[in-house]
Amino acid sequence: MTSIVKTVTRLVVGVIFIYGIYIILHGHLTPGGGFAGGAIIAGAFILLVLAYGSDMLKLKAKEAGSSVMESLAILAFLLMAVVAFFLGTKVFFHNYLPKGIIGDLISAGVIPLYNIAVGIEVAAALFTIFLALVIFKEESK
């Protein structure tokens, strides 16, 4: 890519990343949440790959890494749901942590944790889809 794209990417990508994390962490207070924030974070990664490019080997390593992250995030999500089952309530997805005060960042029990797991999952999944398509295109050249 041209140096204009590279410079702008370098300036912007950190901000996009932080904004994604903000959306995920405030998912239980404001509109947004895991999916929206995860999509923004995936956007930051995709921008980096588009601007700087990468050789095949690195792309494949990245794809393996992000698909591992994806599986781990889903397993973490399931684990949180199953833990509720064993905490005596026998109810999946029971909100077993203290709820806190409405409007605080640390409140609403387990919901922020679910949001974080969903955010990682969505970011990893979108990035994996993008990388899979790119790798396929590079291979068929």
């Binding site: 999916f35 969505v122 979108l126 889809i129 899979a132 398509l133 396929f136 295109k137």
Partner: peptide, 17 residues
């Protein structure tokens, strides 16, 4: 929307193949 994303990704992957 999430489901639609999965469907579209799947369709496009098959289309380029």
């Amino acid at each position: 929307i999430v489901i639609g994303l999965a469907t579209n990704a799947m369709l496009l992957a098959i289309a380029i193949r």
